[in-house]
Simulated assay, not measured.
Amino acid sequence: MIEFLSPLYQLAWPFALAASWLAGEILYRFLGMPRIAVYALGGFLFGNLAASYLPPSEAGAFLLLANFGFGLMLFELGYRINLGWLRHNPWILITALAESLCTFGAVYFVATFCGRPPLASALLASLAMAASPAGLVRVINEQHSSGQVTERALHLSALSCVLAVFTFRVVIGIGVFQTEGDVLHAAWSSLVVLAVSASLGGLFGVVVPVWLRSFEDGARDATLAFTIAVFLLVLLTHVLKFEPVLAALTFGIVARHRRIVLSPAQRNFGVLGDLLSVLLFFYVAATLSWGQVLSGFALGLLLVLVRALVKTLMCTVFARVSGITARKGMFTGLALTPMAVFAILLLEQTRRLGVDLFHSLAPLAAIALLLEVAGPLVTQRAIQLAHEARTVREK
């Protein structure tokens, strides 16, 4: 019987991914529902119905592939960041600092008020600072959107990710110092890891464009070269236990400013990027158990509402001084709703370092599920209300 079921176990993930992709296409075409939200629902159902019967090695392999997919999205986000725009309009940077720090403060206050330990509250608050680039980039590309809300949301997402990773690593370092009393280990867990990760990304961002310029048709082959480079960078940081989020984002930012152009037709990195996005959103939702979601649902829902309110309020407050209307500032804040993929993969990275935080952050599972499904819907609606969507659903 076991010999008969073994091939079925091996086919479970591929068939579940195919079913989620098919459901995503159908619901997008007929209802306009973001594909990634459907992938997440499929992953959550699969994770609670069948994943416990699969060998652990399967999950490890899919984690690495999910990190590859996330790395491509982070590179694409970094590639769209214009540092010159930030220099000419510093209010965007100020907005990012204000909304991220206020989000941290509000989530930390609510979590501690509801009885969560200070360290767990700080970890939740640091994760809540970020707007996940995965959900944002996929919805923007799916809607073919462009405009002030779209560009500001992308820039704010990148800045909030950097701030969130830095804060999260600092909190982890404080936790390590409290438990082990080792200052060197605490420092390595935070600042040194971030510096090395950013340096690796910057090195790739310099070397790859130089290599491409050595060929006459380098620009034509840029998409493939960058894809392979992102894979190598994610694998390197994964093996060395550095921070692939910061490395891939830095790679994209530096590569853009080395003047190597990616064709607009290569957004999402083509078919490979589409395939990895299905796997990424499916895998992240599959890690969430129904019991964890229920145990932290009340506080998780409250923190989701607090986070959305603070981000929307801050973006609205700083809208006029940064050059847009308050209405567009509000839509920008709403577009920053996605968070789940960033949070879950960051926690999986810390688990590989021997620090398992997921079970101490009960509300996070509920937050992740809510924002995995609702986040893309809110982003899509914000872009549409801002009249920046260019997509027409196929019937």
Rank of each mutant, 00 (worst) to 15 (best):
E76S: 07
F62Q: 14
F68P: 10
P55Y: 01
F62T: 12
F75C: 05
F46A: 14
L77D: 07
L83Y: 04
Y39D: 01
A61F: 12
L41N: 14
L74N: 06
A59Q: 06
F46W: 08
G84T: 12
A50T: 12
G78T: 01
F70S: 02
L45K: 00
L72C: 12
G69Y: 13
Y39M: 06
L41A: 15
G47K: 06
L63P: 00
A66T: 10
N67A: 13
E58G: 03
L77P: 07
E76R: 03
E58T: 08
E58K: 00
Y53L: 13
G84Y: 12
F68R: 12
R80P: 01
W85P: 03
F75S: 06
L45W: 01
G69T: 11
L45A: 03
G42T: 07
F62E: 14
L65E: 06
A40M: 09
A50P: 00
G60P: 00
E76H: 04
P56C: 00
F75Y: 09
L77V: 06
L77I: 05
L45Y: 00
L83A: 08
A51V: 06
G71T: 06
L63T: 08
L74F: 07
A61M: 12
L74G: 06
N48G: 03
G42L: 13
F62N: 15
L77W: 02
I81E: 08
L65Q: 07
N82G: 09
G47M: 07
A59R: 12
L64A: 09
A66V: 05
L77A: 08
G60N: 11
A66P: 00
N82S: 15
R80N: 13
S52M: 06
G84S: 15
L64T: 13
L86W: 02
G60Q: 11
E76F: 00
Y53M: 10
W85A: 15
A40T: 07
L45P: 02
A59L: 07
G47E: 05
P55T: 01
N48K: 09
I81P: 02
L63D: 13
L41P: 14
P55S: 03
Y79G: 07
A51L: 13
L49N: 07
L86D: 08
